[in-house]
Each structure stands twice: as structure tokens, then as C-alpha cells.
Design a protein around this nucleic acid. Structure first.
Length: 478
DNA sequence: TGAAATGTTGGGGCG
DNA sequence: ACGCCCCAACATTTC
């Protein structure tokens, strides 16, 4: 005999049926289970989902609804406020239990605490579980019981704990039907898709939803042996491309660990797996850090950088956003982002270094642009990444670590395939010049059909001069 | 998950 | 044969 007649499962960023502790808890403790999603972007405050995230969310919700319907259930969609929607659904279904998987961002933590307290006062049972991270923030601490601020010791501690991870939970094989009278809105009324159709590149690149996530994980596992070196090659598909699936919880990190560690016995595969799991560790590190230091979404973790003066240049920022800086690797990355909603991680570091160090534009400008354009935009990862590059965060790149996009391009795009894919107007330039067209002889440019300032911009900034200027600015901060 | 400047070494050309 | 120079390759230091 189950304790509850009816339970709600409040889906948020756990849009999956496999390894979903909240769903499984509801099924174990109630006879009827009502899956609910509440669209309440205003509750995320200034970090409400951007346009690319909303595109993904639309398709992921559609996929989840499809999966639920196959098992005899359906996704009940509501608009916020969350508490109002939950109370309405509780009233309409006579549910006495609400289950959800926890989120750990500042605004979500606050909102969930308020919702839980209000439901508790209503006499409703609440069960909050962890389906999003390997370990709860606050559970990985150093010898002094303080949060780690450096990745490597954090990872060593976490890695040792990995053997204690429970196996992923199986997806249910069937689900009880939802009550007919529960009120709901249609997905299309949320208007998550763009009004002008700029999303074709996203649709060509991605398959949102749990099935797409599991296929991506399986495919990645097949060539994980190439990951340790291949992950630095933006011209190849050697990275996992799992980030957006992980962000929306179409896949949980426990499934990633279990699948990769158990599938591949070979030494090279094992090395590749451990190299990739270290990156999953960075995701974990970012979430734990944001939990401990919630102000870092908008302010540097290292207070020494609070007084840093930034340049304001709408023109330079716009050139960077549009992939028109005149520096090929940077422009290629920014165009990949605009077109596909994603950018290779090494290129992210390089474009961020150019914006914050060479152009001296505030890292928050970059963070906001990534927030709006990335399908994997994630507050914890985005915050850590930008503060890392700007040098003001945890375990940050030292101030003098300034990427030279020409050298990086020669090293990591040696065949020039990435540049030629994203900058077709430069494609006919010979290998020797394509990473730095402003140094090419006039005859070479002419022969390749390139006219600097016309068919392709001159560099917005001199790399050598701006490097020295950045070193000067940073040295004055110390 | 740097780059540039500076320092060191050693092979080979050449008088 | 020998010393000298050049310079690439590598190592170290500095920002």
C-alpha cells in the first residue's frame, strides 16, 4: 500500500525518464503520478534563459511529452509563478506529495526554498532529490571543511568518491494516466521558438531530448579514445557535445560515468574516459563554487579585481559578437556560435581572451552574449568560464596568460579546416596567410579574392600592442 | 588549458 | 685540424 494516492513530479532541468530520482520516488510512493512543468522564466531573475536555450527547451519539452505519452502518461504544462501553478495542480488532482530534483543556482535555490516552505505549510509532503550533480554542493570540502577554490585537489577528492556513486536508476516501463481535469497550456502558447526563423542551424546540428542525448553519449563512447588530444581540435568532432543535454538534464552525470567507465575496457578508451570525466569534474566544480559563492554570477570571486576598469566600446563588442573582428580564428568561433548555438571549448577560451584582455571589455558582456546564444548556456559553467579567462575567478588563468589567436590557430587548426568552414570569404587564401590575412602580400590577397576592409575586416586591434596594454592594466591591479 | 624574451647548446659551414 | 660564427632547437625566465 502506497503512502500517497497522487503525487506531482515537478520537472525543471531533469527532462528525462532514466536515472530520475524524483520521478522514481513519486512512482514508489504514490498510485497516480502527474508530471508537471512550469514555465516561469522571471523567477530566474536577470539570468532568465536566452533565445538559444528557449529553442532547446521547446524541443526538449516536446520530446519529454512524447516519451511520457508512450508510457501512458503526459506532460502537464503550466505557466508561472511556480507556487501558484503547483497549488492549482495539487488542488485539481488532490495530490499530497510533490517531488523534484534540486537545482543549485542562487535564484532557483531561493525560489525552491520558498515553494517548499509554502507547500509544507499547506500540509503537502515535499521530496527533493539530487539528479543533476554527481555529489551535492557542500559535500566535497577540503581538510578545513571549506570549499575548494582550486580544481585539481577538488577533483582528486571527488574522483575518490566516485566509487560510492549509486548505479543509475532505470526508466519506468509504464506510467499511470494523468487525471483528465487538470488544467494545462499547449506548448506553442509558451512561444519559446523564435519569431523570425534564425534557428535552422540549430535544428541542423542538434537533437534535443532524452533519445538524442543517449544517442550522443553512445556515439561519443565509440571514439572516446581520441578524446585526450582530439578535444583540442575545433576542426574535428572529437568533443562530447553533451553539454546542452546535461544542462537540461536529458542525461544525468551519473549515467555518463557509468556508461563510459563500464563500456570500454581498452587502455586508450580508459585514458579517454578519465580525460573526459575530468571535464565533467569541471562542471561539478563550477556548480559547487556557485553554490558557495552565489554573488559570482555578477561580481568577481577575487575582490582584487573589483576595481578593474573596463573599456566601453559598442563597436568593438559588436564586431566581436558578429564575428567581424578581422582575426580569423575568433571570427570563425563567433560564427560557429551564432549558427549552431555552440562553440568548441578551446575556441571559447580564445574568443574570451580576446574580448577581456586584448579588447579590455568586461567579461560580463561576453557572459551575457554567450548566455543568449549558447544552447548549453549554464549559469555555473558560464560564470566559472568567464571568470577563469578574465583571471578574477577560482583557479583562474593568471593575468599574463593571454592567448595569441594566430598561434593558437596554427597549433589547433593545423589543416585550416575550421577557418575555411566558417570563413568562406578567406577560403582561397593559402595556408601560410589564412590565419593572419592582414600580413599577406597584396598580390596574394588579390589572387584569393580578398580585399581587406571590404570582403573581410582588418583586425579591430593590434594583437601585440593590446597584449602589452593588457599586461600593463593587470600589473597595476596587483 | 600562454607568449615572448632571453639563455644555452650543438651541428655544420667555412676560412 | 681547428676555431669561429651562425642559427635552429630547445630550455628557462619573465610578464
Amino acid at each position: 500500500m502506497k503512502t500517497h494516492r497522487t503525487a506531482l513530479v515537478w520537472f525543471r532541468r531533469d527532462l528525462r525518464l532514466t536515472d530520475n530520482p524524483a520521478l522514481l520516488h513519486a512512482l514508489a510512493n504514490a498510485e497516480r503520478v502527474v508530471p508537471l512543468f512550469v514555465f516561469a522564466p522571471e523567477e530566474e531573475q536577470q539570468w532568465a534563459p536566452g533565445a538559444a536555450s528557449l529553442w532547446w527547451l521547446h524541443h526538449s519539452l516536446a520530446a519529454l511529452n512524447g516519451s511520457l505519452r508512450k508510457l501512458g502518461s503526459a506532460l502537464v504544462l503550466q505557466t508561472g509563478p511556480s507556487l501558484t501553478a503547483l497549488r492549482r495542480a495539487l488542488r485539481e488532482t488532490d495530490a499530497t506529495l510533490v517531488c523534484w530534483n534540486k537545482l543549485y543556482e542562487p535564484a532557483a535555490l531561493k525560489r525552491d526554498a520558498e515553494v517548499a516552505a509554502a507547500l509544507d505549510a499547506d500540509g503537502v509532503s515535499v521530496e527533493q532529490t539530487n539528479g543533476t550533480l554527481l555529489f551535492e554542493p557542500g559535500s566535497i570540502l577540503n581538510g578545513s571543511k571549506l570549499p575548494y577554490r582550486v580544481f585539481t585537489p577538488f577533483w582528486r577528492t571527488l574522483d575518490k568518491e566516485l566509487v560510492t556513486l549509486p548505479a543509475p536508476l532505470r526508466a519506468p516501463r509504464q506510467l499511470p494516466a494523468i487525471p483528465r481535469n487538470v488544467s494545462r497550456v499547449e506548448l506553442d502558447t509558451l512561444e519559446l521558438l523564435p519569431k523570425i526563423a534564425w534557428d535552422q542551424g540549430l535544428a541542423d546540428t542538434w537533437t534535443p531530448g532524452e533519445a538524442g542525448a543517449l544517442k550522443q553519449l553512445k556515439d561519443f563512447g565509440k571514439h572516446v579514445a581520441a578524446y585526450p588530444t582530439g578535444r583540442d581540435r575545433p576542426d574535428r568532432e572529437e568533443t562530447s557535445r553533451l553539454a546542452p543535454h546535461l544542462h537540461f538534464g536529458e542525461l544525468g552525470p551519473r549515467q555518463v560515468v557509468a556508461t563510459l567507465r563500464h563500456a570500454h575496457p581498452g587502455a586508450a578508451e580508459s585514458r579517454g574516459t578519465e580525460s573526459y570525466l575530468r571535464q565533467v569534474g569541471w562542471r561539478e566544480f563550477a556548480h559547487h563554487l556557485l553554490f558557495h559563492f552565489p554573488a559570482t554570477t555578477d561580481a568577481p570571486l577575487n575582490p582584487m579585481f573589483a576595481k578593474q576598469k573596463w573599456r566601453r566600446s559598442r563597436a568593438d563588442l559588436r564586431a566581436w559578437q558578429r564575428g567581424a573582428t578581422g582575426i580569423p580564428l575568433v571570427d570563425a568561433g563567433m560564427r560557429e556560435l551564432w549558427r549552431t548555438g555552440w562553440m568548441h571549448n578551446r575556441v571559447r577560451m580564445i574568443v574570451a581572451s580576446l574580448l577581456t584582455k586584448n579588447l579590455q571589455i568586461h567579461w560580463l558582456e561576453g557572459a551575457h552574449w554567450f548566455w543568449d546564444t549558447l544552447v548549453d548556456a549554464d549559469l555555473a559553467n558560464n560564470t566559472l568560464g568567464w571568470q577563469w579567462v578574465a583571471g578574477c575567478g577560482a583557479d583562474a588563468a593568471p593575468y599574463y596568460r593571454i592567448f595569441n589567436p594566430v598561434l593558437q590557430a596554427k597549433r589547433f587548426d593545423p589543416l585550416r579546416g575550421y577557418i575555411r568552414q566558417w570563413l568562406p570569404e578567406l577560403a582561397r587564401l593559402p595556408d601560410r596567410w589564412i590565419h593572419q590575412p592582414w600580413t599577406a602580400p597584396d598580390a596574394v590577397l588579390k589572387h584569393a579574392g580578398v580585399e581587406l576592409g571590404v570582403t573581410y575586416p582588418r583586425p579591430v586591434v593590434d594583437l601585440g600592442e593590446s597584449r602589452n596594454r593588457a599586461l600593463q592594466v593587470y600589473s597595476e591591479l596587483r
